[in-house]
Design a protein around this nucleic acid. Sequence first.
DNA 1: CGCCTACTTGACATTGCGTCAATTTTAGCA
DNA 2: TGCTAAAATTGACGCAATGTCAAGTAGGCG
Lengths: 209, 209
Amino acid sequence: MSSRRERTKKKILAAALRLLLERGYHNVGMEEVAREAGVSRQAVYLHFGSKPDLLVAMVQHVDESVGTPEILRRTREVKEPLAALDALVSVYLTIEPRIYDTARLIYDARRSDPSAEAAWQDRMSFRRDIARRAIEWLARDGLLAEGWNTDDATDFVWSLLSVHTYEYLVVERGWPIERCECHLQTVLRRTLIGGTGQQRNLWTSGKAT
Amino acid sequence: MSSRRERTKKKILAAALRLLLERGYHNVGMEEVAREAGVSRQAVYLHFGSKPDLLVAMVQHVDESVGTPEILRRTREVKEPLAALDALVSVYLTIEPRIYDTARLIYDARRSDPSAEAAWQDRMSFRRDIARRAIEWLARDGLLAEGWNTDDATDFVWSLLSVHTYEYLVVERGWPIERCECHLQTVLRRTLIGGTGQQRNLWTSGKAT
DNA sequence: CGCCTACTTGACATTGCGTCAATTTTAGCA
DNA sequence: TGCTAAAATTGACGCAATGTCAAGTAGGCG
Protein backbone atom coordinates (compact mmCIF):
# COMPACT_ATOMS: atom_id res chain seq x y z
CA MET A 1 0.00 0.00 0.00
CA SER A 2 2.44 2.59 -1.20
CA SER A 3 0.93 6.02 -1.01
CA ARG A 4 1.28 8.46 -3.82
CA ARG A 5 3.95 10.29 -1.91
CA GLU A 6 6.05 7.21 -1.44
CA ARG A 7 5.83 6.23 -5.06
CA THR A 8 7.05 9.62 -6.22
CA LYS A 9 9.86 9.48 -3.73
CA LYS A 10 10.98 6.12 -5.09
CA LYS A 11 10.84 7.40 -8.64
CA ILE A 12 13.10 10.27 -7.72
CA LEU A 13 15.51 8.04 -5.84
CA ALA A 14 15.74 5.66 -8.77
CA ALA A 15 16.36 8.50 -11.20
CA ALA A 16 18.98 10.07 -8.95
CA LEU A 17 20.67 6.70 -8.65
CA ARG A 18 20.88 6.20 -12.38
CA LEU A 19 22.19 9.67 -13.08
CA LEU A 20 24.55 10.23 -10.18
CA LEU A 21 26.15 6.80 -10.46
CA GLU A 22 26.76 7.34 -14.11
CA ARG A 23 28.01 10.89 -14.08
CA GLY A 24 29.05 11.82 -10.55
CA TYR A 25 27.77 14.17 -7.92
CA HIS A 26 28.92 17.48 -9.35
CA ASN A 27 27.98 16.67 -12.92
CA VAL A 28 24.27 16.23 -12.41
CA GLY A 29 21.87 18.97 -11.37
CA MET A 30 18.57 18.77 -9.59
CA GLU A 31 16.82 19.83 -12.77
CA GLU A 32 18.07 16.80 -14.59
CA VAL A 33 17.21 14.45 -11.76
CA ALA A 34 13.66 15.78 -11.83
CA ARG A 35 13.40 15.42 -15.58
CA GLU A 36 14.71 11.85 -15.44
CA ALA A 37 12.20 11.03 -12.72
CA GLY A 38 9.40 12.62 -14.69
CA VAL A 39 8.50 15.10 -11.96
CA SER A 40 8.97 18.79 -11.45
CA ARG A 41 12.15 20.20 -9.98
CA GLN A 42 10.27 21.35 -6.93
CA ALA A 43 8.96 17.90 -6.20
CA VAL A 44 12.53 16.86 -5.57
CA TYR A 45 12.96 19.63 -3.04
CA LEU A 46 9.64 18.68 -1.52
CA HIS A 47 10.84 15.17 -0.75
CA PHE A 48 14.51 15.73 -0.08
CA GLY A 49 15.33 19.20 1.12
CA SER A 50 18.62 19.64 -0.69
CA LYS A 51 21.07 17.95 -2.98
CA PRO A 52 23.30 16.61 -0.19
CA ASP A 53 20.23 15.28 1.60
CA LEU A 54 19.14 13.53 -1.57
CA LEU A 55 22.55 11.94 -1.78
CA VAL A 56 22.44 10.71 1.80
CA ALA A 57 18.95 9.29 1.27
CA MET A 58 20.19 7.53 -1.84
CA VAL A 59 23.02 5.91 0.02
CA GLN A 60 20.80 4.72 2.84
CA HIS A 61 18.38 3.31 0.30
CA VAL A 62 21.12 1.37 -1.47
CA ASP A 63 22.51 0.11 1.82
CA GLU A 64 19.12 -1.23 2.79
CA SER A 65 18.41 -2.85 -0.53
CA VAL A 66 21.82 -4.53 -0.50
CA GLY A 67 21.21 -5.83 3.00
CA THR A 68 24.68 -5.25 4.33
CA PRO A 69 23.86 -6.36 7.91
CA GLU A 70 22.61 -9.79 6.80
CA ILE A 71 25.65 -10.41 4.65
CA LEU A 72 27.91 -9.33 7.48
CA ARG A 73 26.30 -11.84 9.77
CA ARG A 74 28.17 -14.49 7.80
CA THR A 75 31.32 -13.38 9.56
CA ARG A 76 29.94 -14.70 12.84
CA GLU A 77 28.93 -18.11 11.52
CA VAL A 78 32.57 -19.01 11.16
CA LYS A 79 33.89 -21.56 13.64
CA GLU A 80 37.51 -20.60 14.13
CA PRO A 81 39.32 -17.24 14.18
CA LEU A 82 41.66 -18.10 11.33
CA ALA A 83 38.72 -18.62 9.02
CA ALA A 84 37.21 -15.38 10.27
CA LEU A 85 39.91 -13.39 8.55
CA ASP A 86 39.23 -15.13 5.26
CA ALA A 87 35.51 -14.67 5.72
CA LEU A 88 36.06 -10.98 6.32
CA VAL A 89 37.72 -10.57 2.96
CA SER A 90 35.10 -12.72 1.30
CA VAL A 91 32.25 -10.72 2.74
CA TYR A 92 34.01 -7.47 1.91
CA LEU A 93 34.22 -8.46 -1.74
CA THR A 94 30.62 -9.57 -1.79
CA ILE A 95 29.37 -6.24 -0.55
CA GLU A 96 31.80 -3.84 -2.12
CA PRO A 97 30.81 -4.25 -5.76
CA ARG A 98 27.23 -3.41 -4.87
CA ILE A 99 27.90 -0.36 -2.79
CA TYR A 100 31.07 0.93 -4.35
CA ASP A 101 29.46 3.58 -6.51
CA THR A 102 27.38 5.10 -3.77
CA ALA A 103 30.22 4.90 -1.29
CA ARG A 104 32.32 6.78 -3.76
CA LEU A 105 29.61 9.41 -4.14
CA ILE A 106 29.50 9.98 -0.40
CA TYR A 107 33.27 10.14 -0.27
CA ASP A 108 33.25 12.78 -3.00
CA ALA A 109 30.65 14.89 -1.28
CA ARG A 110 32.00 14.68 2.24
CA ARG A 111 34.50 17.46 1.75
CA SER A 112 31.82 19.98 0.90
CA ASP A 113 28.91 18.76 2.96
CA PRO A 114 28.61 18.00 6.68
CA SER A 115 25.79 15.50 6.42
CA ALA A 116 27.68 13.52 3.82
CA GLU A 117 30.68 13.59 6.13
CA ALA A 118 28.53 12.26 8.96
CA ALA A 119 27.16 9.47 6.79
CA TRP A 120 30.70 8.58 5.77
CA GLN A 121 32.00 8.48 9.32
CA ASP A 122 29.07 6.30 10.32
CA ARG A 123 29.91 3.82 7.67
CA MET A 124 33.57 3.87 8.59
CA SER A 125 33.10 3.26 12.28
CA PHE A 126 30.71 0.43 11.45
CA ARG A 127 33.33 -1.16 9.25
CA ARG A 128 35.99 -0.76 11.89
CA ASP A 129 33.75 -2.57 14.36
CA ILE A 130 33.45 -5.53 12.01
CA ALA A 131 37.20 -5.68 11.59
CA ARG A 132 37.76 -5.31 15.32
CA ARG A 133 35.58 -8.30 16.11
CA ALA A 134 37.70 -10.59 13.96
CA ILE A 135 40.96 -9.20 15.31
CA GLU A 136 39.88 -9.53 18.94
CA TRP A 137 39.04 -13.12 18.27
CA LEU A 138 42.51 -13.74 16.89
CA ALA A 139 44.13 -11.91 19.76
CA ARG A 140 42.18 -13.83 22.38
CA ASP A 141 43.49 -17.08 20.97
CA GLY A 142 47.02 -15.73 20.87
CA LEU A 143 47.13 -15.90 17.09
CA LEU A 144 47.93 -12.27 16.42
CA ALA A 145 51.40 -12.06 14.90
CA GLU A 146 54.30 -10.39 16.60
CA GLY A 147 54.41 -6.63 16.14
CA TRP A 148 50.67 -6.06 16.21
CA ASN A 149 48.27 -5.03 18.92
CA THR A 150 44.50 -5.13 18.58
CA ASP A 151 44.05 -1.45 17.76
CA ASP A 152 46.70 -1.29 15.07
CA ALA A 153 45.61 -4.53 13.46
CA THR A 154 42.01 -3.33 13.44
CA ASP A 155 42.97 -0.09 11.75
CA PHE A 156 45.07 -1.92 9.21
CA VAL A 157 42.38 -4.42 8.29
CA TRP A 158 39.86 -1.61 8.08
CA SER A 159 42.06 0.40 5.77
CA LEU A 160 42.97 -2.62 3.64
CA LEU A 161 39.32 -3.59 3.20
CA SER A 162 38.25 -0.11 2.22
CA VAL A 163 36.42 1.46 -0.67
CA HIS A 164 39.73 2.55 -2.08
CA THR A 165 41.47 -0.79 -2.11
CA TYR A 166 38.51 -1.98 -4.16
CA GLU A 167 38.78 1.09 -6.34
CA TYR A 168 42.49 0.72 -6.95
CA LEU A 169 42.63 -3.02 -7.55
CA VAL A 170 39.27 -3.94 -9.04
CA VAL A 171 38.05 -0.74 -10.67
CA GLU A 172 41.32 0.82 -11.80
CA ARG A 173 43.47 -2.25 -12.36
CA GLY A 174 40.70 -4.53 -13.45
CA TRP A 175 41.37 -7.37 -11.04
CA PRO A 176 38.64 -10.01 -11.05
CA ILE A 177 36.97 -10.36 -7.67
CA GLU A 178 38.39 -13.85 -7.16
CA ARG A 179 41.95 -12.74 -7.66
CA CYS A 180 41.42 -9.82 -5.34
CA GLU A 181 39.89 -12.10 -2.71
CA CYS A 182 42.73 -14.57 -2.91
CA HIS A 183 45.46 -11.95 -2.65
CA LEU A 184 43.85 -9.98 0.14
CA GLN A 185 43.35 -13.14 2.15
CA THR A 186 46.99 -13.97 1.64
CA VAL A 187 48.03 -10.53 2.78
CA LEU A 188 46.01 -10.70 5.96
CA ARG A 189 47.04 -14.23 6.85
CA ARG A 190 50.74 -13.75 6.28
CA THR A 191 50.77 -10.38 7.96
CA LEU A 192 48.57 -10.82 10.99
CA ILE A 193 48.61 -14.47 11.92
CA GLY A 194 51.40 -15.60 14.13
CA GLY A 195 52.04 -18.29 16.72
CA THR A 196 50.72 -21.76 15.96
CA GLY A 197 48.28 -20.47 13.38
CA GLN A 198 51.05 -19.53 11.04
CA GLN A 199 52.46 -23.05 10.90
CA ARG A 200 49.10 -24.47 10.12
CA ASN A 201 48.12 -22.03 7.42
CA LEU A 202 51.13 -20.48 5.81
CA TRP A 203 51.44 -23.05 3.07
CA THR A 204 47.87 -23.00 1.99
CA SER A 205 47.90 -19.27 1.92
CA GLY A 206 48.92 -18.88 -1.68
CA LYS A 207 46.09 -20.87 -3.17
CA ALA A 208 42.81 -19.89 -1.60
CA THR A 209 39.73 -19.97 -3.77
CA MET B 1 65.02 37.77 -12.91
CA SER B 2 61.40 37.26 -11.93
CA SER B 3 59.26 39.42 -14.12
CA ARG B 4 56.25 41.20 -12.83
CA ARG B 5 54.06 38.54 -14.39
CA GLU B 6 55.83 35.70 -12.67
CA ARG B 7 55.66 37.38 -9.31
CA THR B 8 51.92 37.85 -9.57
CA LYS B 9 51.51 34.27 -10.65
CA LYS B 10 53.39 33.07 -7.58
CA LYS B 11 51.31 35.25 -5.31
CA ILE B 12 48.16 33.70 -6.69
CA LEU B 13 49.49 30.16 -6.43
CA ALA B 14 50.49 30.74 -2.82
CA ALA B 15 47.10 32.17 -1.96
CA ALA B 16 45.27 29.35 -3.71
CA LEU B 17 47.41 26.87 -1.84
CA ARG B 18 46.61 28.35 1.54
CA LEU B 19 42.89 28.53 0.90
CA LEU B 20 42.23 25.33 -0.99
CA LEU B 21 44.30 23.19 1.35
CA GLU B 22 42.45 24.58 4.29
CA ARG B 23 38.92 24.47 2.99
CA GLY B 24 38.77 22.18 -0.02
CA TYR B 25 38.17 22.62 -3.70
CA HIS B 26 34.46 23.26 -3.73
CA ASN B 27 34.45 25.53 -0.70
CA VAL B 28 36.65 28.28 -2.07
CA GLY B 29 35.76 30.56 -4.95
CA MET B 30 37.98 32.40 -7.38
CA GLU B 31 36.92 35.69 -5.83
CA GLU B 32 38.34 34.66 -2.50
CA VAL B 33 41.56 33.38 -4.02
CA ALA B 34 42.02 36.72 -5.73
CA ARG B 35 41.32 38.67 -2.55
CA GLU B 36 43.76 36.51 -0.58
CA ALA B 37 46.41 37.08 -3.24
CA GLY B 38 45.77 40.81 -3.29
CA VAL B 39 44.92 40.90 -6.98
CA SER B 40 41.76 41.28 -8.98
CA ARG B 41 39.60 38.30 -9.79
CA GLN B 42 40.38 38.70 -13.46
CA ALA B 43 44.10 38.49 -12.86
CA VAL B 44 43.54 34.94 -11.75
CA TYR B 45 41.76 34.11 -14.99
CA LEU B 46 44.53 35.88 -16.86
CA HIS B 47 47.18 33.59 -15.45
CA PHE B 48 45.25 30.36 -15.11
CA GLY B 49 42.35 30.05 -17.47
CA SER B 50 39.94 28.29 -15.14
CA LYS B 51 39.53 26.88 -11.69
CA PRO B 52 40.50 23.33 -12.63
CA ASP B 53 43.56 24.65 -14.45
CA LEU B 54 44.54 26.60 -11.37
CA LEU B 55 44.27 23.42 -9.37
CA VAL B 56 46.45 21.47 -11.76
CA ALA B 57 49.05 24.25 -11.77
CA MET B 58 49.00 24.23 -7.97
CA VAL B 59 49.67 20.53 -7.83
CA GLN B 60 52.53 20.70 -10.30
CA HIS B 61 54.02 23.56 -8.32
CA VAL B 62 53.86 21.61 -5.08
CA ASP B 63 55.31 18.52 -6.73
CA GLU B 64 58.26 20.52 -7.98
CA SER B 65 58.89 22.27 -4.70
CA VAL B 66 58.78 18.96 -2.84
CA GLY B 67 61.22 17.43 -5.31
CA THR B 68 59.60 14.04 -5.55
CA PRO B 69 62.00 12.70 -8.21
CA GLU B 70 65.09 13.38 -6.09
CA ILE B 71 63.59 11.70 -3.05
CA LEU B 72 62.55 8.74 -5.15
CA ARG B 73 66.09 8.32 -6.36
CA ARG B 74 66.85 7.01 -2.88
CA THR B 75 65.07 3.82 -3.82
CA ARG B 76 67.79 3.03 -6.32
CA GLU B 77 70.69 3.62 -3.95
CA VAL B 78 69.71 0.53 -2.05
CA LYS B 79 72.03 -2.44 -2.47
CA GLU B 80 69.76 -5.45 -2.15
CA PRO B 81 66.17 -6.09 -3.21
CA LEU B 82 64.95 -6.92 0.28
CA ALA B 83 65.98 -3.49 1.49
CA ALA B 84 64.32 -1.95 -1.55
CA LEU B 85 60.91 -2.85 -0.24
CA ASP B 86 61.63 -1.17 3.07
CA ALA B 87 63.06 1.84 1.30
CA LEU B 88 59.92 2.08 -0.80
CA VAL B 89 57.79 2.42 2.30
CA SER B 90 60.22 4.81 3.86
CA VAL B 91 60.28 7.05 0.81
CA TYR B 92 56.52 6.85 0.50
CA LEU B 93 56.10 8.15 4.02
CA THR B 94 58.63 10.90 3.45
CA ILE B 95 56.81 12.23 0.45
CA GLU B 96 53.21 11.58 1.34
CA PRO B 97 52.84 14.07 4.22
CA ARG B 98 54.03 16.86 1.95
CA ILE B 99 51.84 16.11 -1.00
CA TYR B 100 48.85 14.54 0.67
CA ASP B 101 46.69 17.65 0.66
CA THR B 102 47.21 18.49 -2.96
CA ALA B 103 46.89 14.87 -4.02
CA ARG B 104 43.58 14.80 -2.22
CA LEU B 105 42.48 17.95 -4.02
CA ILE B 106 43.22 16.40 -7.39
CA TYR B 107 41.44 13.22 -6.38
CA ASP B 108 38.38 15.26 -5.41
CA ALA B 109 38.35 17.18 -8.63
CA ARG B 110 39.04 14.31 -10.99
CA ARG B 111 35.43 13.22 -11.16
CA SER B 112 34.25 16.55 -12.46
CA ASP B 113 37.24 17.67 -14.49
CA PRO B 114 39.13 15.92 -17.29
CA SER B 115 42.43 17.74 -16.79
CA ALA B 116 42.40 16.85 -13.11
CA GLU B 117 41.72 13.26 -14.09
CA ALA B 118 44.67 13.35 -16.47
CA ALA B 119 46.95 14.78 -13.78
CA TRP B 120 45.79 12.05 -11.40
CA GLN B 121 46.41 9.25 -13.88
CA ASP B 122 49.85 10.65 -14.59
CA ARG B 123 50.71 10.54 -10.94
CA MET B 124 49.32 7.05 -10.55
CA SER B 125 51.21 5.51 -13.44
CA PHE B 126 54.38 7.15 -12.17
CA ARG B 127 53.86 5.58 -8.78
CA ARG B 128 53.16 2.20 -10.29
CA ASP B 129 56.44 2.40 -12.15
CA ILE B 130 58.30 2.97 -8.91
CA ALA B 131 56.62 0.01 -7.30
CA ARG B 132 57.23 -2.15 -10.34
CA ARG B 133 60.97 -1.52 -10.25
CA ALA B 134 61.24 -2.86 -6.72
CA ILE B 135 59.06 -5.85 -7.46
CA GLU B 136 60.95 -6.77 -10.61
CA TRP B 137 64.13 -6.69 -8.61
CA LEU B 138 62.65 -9.11 -6.09
CA ALA B 139 61.31 -11.36 -8.81
CA ARG B 140 64.61 -11.49 -10.67
CA ASP B 141 66.30 -12.77 -7.51
CA GLY B 142 63.53 -15.31 -6.96
CA LEU B 143 62.45 -13.64 -3.76
CA LEU B 144 58.84 -13.03 -4.68
CA ALA B 145 56.64 -15.14 -2.44
CA GLU B 146 54.48 -17.94 -3.71
CA GLY B 147 51.15 -16.82 -5.10
CA TRP B 148 52.35 -13.56 -6.63
CA ASN B 149 53.42 -12.56 -10.08
CA THR B 150 55.08 -9.28 -10.96
CA ASP B 151 51.95 -7.53 -12.19
CA ASP B 152 49.79 -8.40 -9.23
CA ALA B 153 52.48 -7.60 -6.70
CA THR B 154 53.08 -4.25 -8.39
CA ASP B 155 49.41 -3.37 -8.26
CA PHE B 156 49.20 -4.41 -4.65
CA VAL B 157 52.21 -2.39 -3.54
CA TRP B 158 50.94 0.57 -5.52
CA SER B 159 47.54 0.37 -3.88
CA LEU B 160 48.98 -0.17 -0.41
CA LEU B 161 51.28 2.82 -0.75
CA SER B 162 48.55 5.12 -1.93
CA VAL B 163 47.16 8.45 -0.91
CA HIS B 164 44.31 6.66 0.77
CA THR B 165 46.32 4.32 2.96
CA TYR B 166 47.99 7.46 4.25
CA GLU B 167 44.63 9.11 4.65
CA TYR B 168 43.08 6.20 6.51
CA LEU B 169 45.94 5.36 8.84
CA VAL B 170 47.76 8.63 9.45
CA VAL B 171 45.13 11.29 8.85
CA GLU B 172 41.98 9.53 10.08
CA ARG B 173 43.40 7.15 12.69
CA GLY B 174 46.21 9.38 13.83
CA TRP B 175 49.05 6.91 13.41
CA PRO B 176 52.48 8.49 13.80
CA ILE B 177 54.57 8.17 10.67
CA GLU B 178 57.01 5.81 12.38
CA ARG B 179 54.32 3.37 13.37
CA CYS B 180 52.86 3.49 9.89
CA GLU B 181 56.27 2.90 8.34
CA CYS B 182 57.01 -0.04 10.62
CA HIS B 183 53.69 -1.74 10.01
CA LEU B 184 53.64 -1.22 6.26
CA GLN B 185 57.14 -2.61 5.97
CA THR B 186 56.04 -5.63 7.95
CA VAL B 187 53.04 -6.11 5.70
CA LEU B 188 55.09 -6.01 2.52
CA ARG B 189 57.87 -8.24 3.82
CA ARG B 190 55.64 -10.92 5.22
CA THR B 191 53.33 -10.84 2.24
CA LEU B 192 55.65 -10.58 -0.73
CA ILE B 193 58.98 -12.01 0.28
CA GLY B 194 59.39 -15.72 -0.09
CA GLY B 195 62.15 -18.20 -0.73
CA THR B 196 65.38 -17.65 1.13
CA GLY B 197 64.60 -14.05 1.86
CA GLN B 198 61.84 -15.02 4.19
CA GLN B 199 64.10 -17.03 6.43
CA ARG B 200 66.54 -14.20 6.70
CA ASN B 201 64.08 -11.45 7.41
CA LEU B 202 60.94 -12.77 8.96
CA TRP B 203 62.06 -12.43 12.54
CA THR B 204 63.29 -8.92 12.31
CA SER B 205 60.15 -7.87 10.55
CA GLY B 206 58.22 -6.92 13.65
CA LYS B 207 60.72 -4.40 14.91
CA ALA B 208 61.83 -2.14 12.13
CA THR B 209 62.57 1.50 12.95
C1' DC C 1 57.94 61.34 -23.49
C1' DG C 2 55.40 57.42 -25.38
C1' DC C 3 54.75 52.43 -25.62
C1' DC C 4 53.71 47.92 -24.38
C1' DT C 5 52.59 44.69 -21.16
C1' DA C 6 50.25 43.62 -17.05
C1' DC C 7 46.62 44.51 -14.33
C1' DT C 8 42.02 46.64 -12.89
C1' DT C 9 37.25 47.88 -13.29
C1' DG C 10 32.67 47.07 -13.97
C1' DA C 11 29.49 44.98 -16.58
C1' DC C 12 27.43 40.90 -18.47
C1' DA C 13 25.78 35.93 -19.58
C1' DT C 14 25.10 31.47 -17.66
C1' DT C 15 24.31 27.86 -14.54
C1' DG C 16 22.97 25.73 -10.38
C1' DC C 17 20.97 25.77 -5.77
C1' DG C 18 17.33 26.83 -2.92
C1' DT C 19 12.72 29.32 -1.86
C1' DC C 20 8.16 31.09 -2.34
C1' DA C 21 3.21 31.71 -3.42
C1' DA C 22 -0.42 30.67 -6.32
C1' DT C 23 -2.49 27.16 -8.74
C1' DT C 24 -3.76 22.68 -10.44
C1' DT C 25 -4.03 17.79 -10.12
C1' DT C 26 -5.09 13.66 -7.81
C1' DA C 27 -6.18 10.15 -4.42
C1' DG C 28 -9.18 8.86 -0.84
C1' DC C 29 -13.51 8.98 1.09
C1' DA C 30 -18.31 10.11 2.21
C1' DT D 1 -20.59 10.75 -7.89
C1' DG D 2 -18.53 15.02 -5.85
C1' DC D 3 -15.71 17.12 -1.82
C1' DT D 4 -11.55 17.80 0.45
C1' DA D 5 -6.97 17.80 1.69
C1' DA D 6 -2.65 16.32 0.35
C1' DA D 7 0.65 16.26 -3.31
C1' DA D 8 2.56 18.12 -7.27
C1' DT D 9 3.15 21.92 -10.79
C1' DT D 10 4.15 26.49 -12.40
C1' DG D 11 6.72 30.47 -12.75
C1' DA D 12 8.92 33.63 -10.50
C1' DC D 13 12.68 35.19 -7.48
C1' DG D 14 17.38 35.75 -4.85
C1' DC D 15 21.86 34.28 -4.52
C1' DA D 16 26.46 32.74 -5.41
C1' DA D 17 29.94 31.08 -8.51
C1' DT D 18 32.19 30.51 -13.02
C1' DG D 19 33.73 32.53 -16.94
C1' DT D 20 33.89 36.44 -20.58
C1' DC D 21 34.43 41.01 -22.47
C1' DA D 22 35.75 45.77 -23.39
C1' DA D 23 37.49 49.85 -21.83
C1' DG D 24 40.47 52.02 -18.85
C1' DT D 25 44.74 52.48 -15.93
C1' DA D 26 49.12 51.71 -13.96
C1' DG D 27 54.34 50.62 -14.32
C1' DG D 28 58.69 49.61 -16.46
C1' DC D 29 61.79 50.62 -20.61
C1' DG D 30 63.42 52.61 -24.84
